[in-house]
């Protein structure tokens, strides 16, 4: 009986100590982690939105549970951005951030994270590929050439760029619906 008691007591003491240590370390690092995570979102937004001087991660409109970041310059709306998670990639989810200006033209696309094949599918991160979306609007055929669209796929990988195209097209539709932009 005493040996059971001793085992239980030991484990209890160890787990409580570990818990206290973790609470301390969590407290010491949580602000910095939150700052780093926010910085990452802001950097990505800066890349896809046109000129803005506000903090788009705080200027958010919500539509059907989807967050839309609004970029403003001197209080005037200059563009919108939305983050879409696309699951039709080659391996795992692709998180795509798409920025649209107030005329409904794509102002920038960024890949937040992905786990496509290194050397093949991960070319979706190349700026050349991402820039090929810029300036397109909802009437353009946003799809890879193989599917009759305007986006250049790269040799050896069609699935990854196809998934990104799909995500960009979705984002554009979401933004246009939510922000009530004209299709011009």
């Amino acid at each position: 009986m005493t040996s059971y008691f001793k085992s239980i007591l030991t484990i209890t003491i160890i787990t409580i100590t570990a818990g206290v240590m973790l609470a301390l370390s969590h407290n010491a690092t949580k602000d910095k982690i939150a700052y780093q995570e926010r910085q990452e979102v802001l950097n990505a937004l800066k890349a896809v939105l046109t000129v803005h001087d506000n903090q788009p991660d705080k200027d958010v409109i919500e539509k059907d549970g989807i967050k839309i970041y609004v970029g403003k310059n001197n209080g005037e709306i200059t563009g919108y951005a939305v983050n879409v998670i696309e699951t039709s990639g080659y391996s795992g989810a692709i998180s795509v951030l798409t920025g649209v200006d107030k005329k409904g033209l794509i102002s920038g696309v960024a890949i937040v994270y992905h786990s496509e094949t290194p050397g093949l599918g991960d070319k979706i991160e190349d700026s050349e590929f991402l820039q090929s979306f810029e300036g397109l609007n909802i009437n353009d055929r946003i799809a890879v050439k193989k599917d009759g669209g305007e986006i250049e796929q790269f040799s050896g990988a069609t699935i990854s760029p196809r998934a990104v195209s799909k995500a960009v097209k979705n984002s554009l539709e979401i933004i246009i619906k939510a922000a009530g932009l004209e299709n011009d």
Binding site: T10, I11, I14, T15, A18, M21, L22, S25, H26, T29, K32, I33, Q36
Partner: peptide
């Protein structure tokens, strides 16, 4: 189990420190 708890504690602290810095 005791060793694993101790190791897990260290790993989580390192994980948080790396995430912050």
């Amino acid at each position: 189990p005791s060793y694993i708890v101790i190791i897990a504690c260290f790993v989580t602290i390192i994980d948080q420190m790396m995430k912050a810095n």
